[in-house]
């Protein structure tokens, strides 16, 4: 009696092995598609924009003539925006994370806060823009100012910072807390002198990544109504301003071909800022993060 036909099994086996090979190729191709898309995108922007990128571009104001167009107001505006977003979002985000991780008891209210944060992370940024337009720009009368846009952006990235800070705080081992209590420290002393210092690298990394998202975010600024062609720099928090992505949006919309190159140059500046921030985040992660 023959239960298995050797030949038949071998034949099928070969086929299965071939399929395995073929699909491995397909999966590699799918992965390469993503990498290729990124490579083409970067190449296109560098090759188009490099010609327009020079010192004048960084120090000129926006202009209707492509050759004279510069990004000074937008660059300064984006930095001013970060000066509002960074302190507001990090203070609120870290405080919320400390509350949720260290103080919050397991009850319905705190469950609601947690669920609320995870849902807030999925709200489209343009909806945050509508919130900012109604509450900050109109109701609180801040106008189209750095403060109004900064607070809107802070709320937008708040969930990201909260989650990053929660993870960093959770990663601090329990024995460190208990050692601190054992020495007679109070809860708050333990948090501020033991937990937070140990969690700071993780918190900073997450915050910088969140801030770099805020720098590239355009939709809320469009909804708030930030102007694009500005010939002056803001002098205070209630002044109006323009930002890098807004300026790029304006150039990209223009029909003249030259402005495409100007937009590319603007994108290079924006990406350079992002890469700079991301490298700081990676540096902090690699240098200071301890594994327990």
């Amino acid at each position: 009696m023959r239960y298995l036909q050797q030949e038949h099994v071998m034949k099928r086996m070969n086929k299965r092995l071939v399929w395995n090979r073929v699909w491995k190729g397909v999966f590699i191709a799918a992965t390469s598609f993503a990498l290729l898309a990124l490579a083409i995108l970067l190449y296109r922007i560098l090759s188009q924009g490099m010609g327009y990128l020079n010192f004048d571009f960084l120090t000129n104001f926006a202009s209707r003539i492509p050759e004279n167009a510069g990004i000074k107001a937008a660059l300064v505006g984006s930095l001013c925006l970060m000066a509002v977003v960074a302190p507001v979002s990090i203070i609120l985000g870290v405080s919320t994370a400390i509350y949720l991780e260290e103080y919050a008891k397991k009850n319905k209210l705190n469950d609601f806060i947690r669920m609320n944060i995870s849902n807030l992370a999925g709200v489209p940024s343009i909806v945050f823009g509508l919130l900012g337009l109604t509450i900050f720009v109109r109701m609180l009368g801040m106008g189209k100012s750095i403060l109004a846009a900064g607070l809107t952006m802070s709320l937008l990235i708040l969930p990201v910072i909260i989650v990053a800070a929660q993870e960093a705080i959770r990663a601090v081992p329990k024995d460190q807390r208990e050692a601190s209590y054992g020495m007679g420290a109070t809860k708050w002393q333990t948090i501020i002198r033991v937990v937070i210092p140990a969690a700071i690298p993780g918190i900073l990394t997450g915050s910088i990544l969140a801030l770099s998202r805020a720098i590239g975010e355009t939709a809320p600024l469009v909804v708030i109504g930030i102007p694009v062609i500005l010939q002056f720099l803001p002098t205070g928090m209630l002044d109006t301003f323009t930002a890098l992505p807004m300026q790029i949006f304006d150039w990209a919309k223009r029909p003249q071909e030259e402005f495409q190159y100007v937009a590319s140059a603007g994108i290079i500046v924006l990406m350079a800022v992002l890469i700079f921030m991301n490298s700081i985040a990676v540096f902090i992660r690699n240098k200071f993060q301890k594994r327990y």
Binding site: A34, L35, L41, R44, G216, I248, L274
Partner: peptide, 24 residues
């Protein structure tokens, strides 16, 4: 090596993608 590259792709601002769609 590939995972961080995917993270970079996820971190590209949408305005840059929009420009890429329109001009390329």
């Amino acid at each position: 090596t590939i995972k961080p590259v995917l993270e970079v792709l996820a971190g590209v601002p949408t305005i840059v993608y929009g420009f890429f769609a329109l001009t390329f």
